[in-house]
Design a protein around this nucleic acid. Sequence first.
DNA 1: GACAAAAATGAACATCGTTCAAAAAAAATT
DNA 2: AATTTTTTTTGAACGATGTTCATTTTTGTC
Lengths: 204, 204
Amino acid sequence: MSTAREAKKAELKKRLIDAAEAEIIEHGLAGLKARAVTARAGCALGSLYTVVEDLDMLVIEVNSRTLTELGATLTDAVSKAGDTPQHALQALALRYADFAIAHQPLWLSLFEHRLPEGQDIPEWHKQEHAVLVEVIAPHLAKLRPDMTREALILRTRTTFAAVHGVVYLALQGRFVGVPMEALKSEIAGLVETLTAGAAQMTKD
Amino acid sequence: MSTAREAKKAELKKRLIDAAEAEIIEHGLAGLKARAVTARAGCALGSLYTVVEDLDMLVIEVNSRTLTELGATLTDAVSKAGDTPQHALQALALRYADFAIAHQPLWLSLFEHRLPEGQDIPEWHKQEHAVLVEVIAPHLAKLRPDMTREALILRTRTTFAAVHGVVYLALQGRFVGVPMEALKSEIAGLVETLTAGAAQMTKD
DNA sequence: GACAAAAATGAACATCGTTCAAAAAAAATT
DNA sequence: AATTTTTTTTGAACGATGTTCATTTTTGTC
């Protein structure tokens, strides 16, 4: 039967994704090597290309996993937060920072990975990023009942990007980033300022 | 005399930095190749390593130039802005976005360049990033007279990182970034929200 | 102009990602 | 069960890359 073949191939693919994930955790995205991955997965170098187009596509598979986990933990954070939009947004931002800290190399590879010029990311993987804004949107909507749906979508992305920027530069650890020990309180301060400003602007 | 030699070496270094800058503009940071740079500069492959430790160090030289230009344009933006902190911060954020758009590959290489594990950025180059927050600090201080000097330094970095995050994800052009056509108005909305929130929080 | 010191050169090396002819394994056929 | 055909796995080989260093070329000095 052909399902046995497919199952074996799927199992090899899983081993390779596992190995790539472990290598990224140990050596970072830049330290990911095809030979190290295949050695760890216990297969030949060439086998990698029978299961996945590219080493880049293997990274995308790892990133896909990471996004699923990140989405789940963000959803969990919202469910445990108070019912005001302020509480929900604080819980989301804090949980985002916690995830980034706890899974630094995997989280970094979400945003550091680049495809060679010409290629672009498969649509199914682009869609997986939607969760990052979907968890924010309803709470921001409560804060800004004056905004249209379209304006809210944009502002949600902007809000995510603002928090993300603070976490990203802090975890990079150099230049103008906030020191790690101040990150959580600064995130809290940023969200507090944003929610206070949003509430204020709605009054007019 | 030895100055003639030094002058020649300095001239070669300049040619190499020029070439690296041009290559980054044309092919992006990831497309920067030692052979292409030296060919463009009109010298042998090995000459690169008589003038600069590494290809990485050549990137740092390019980034140093970019930071100088960016600092100058930000300072100019402040000088032409109205005298309220709101106007100054709006002008700064807008100018930042304009610079990033106008010099996309050079601006990206400021934040995408990574040194191999173990190495870290020379202190003189780290210091060059200070301008990014120094131009913001005095105006934020006016908005938050209640904050200590230390708290203001942190909040300034946070404010920069927030705006930076929005610009960065938008220019990456994928995932959760704001579409380019909405970038400037979203930046304006973010800064408006931040300043309104800051003013509100100072009241208490 | 001959010699010594310094600088420039580019072939050679190690390390990548990727390919593909050959070997091994599996399936089909007689 | 043996043989043939098909499929899968393999790792040597290739091209591209950053870096080194013995050799060549240039420069400086007497």
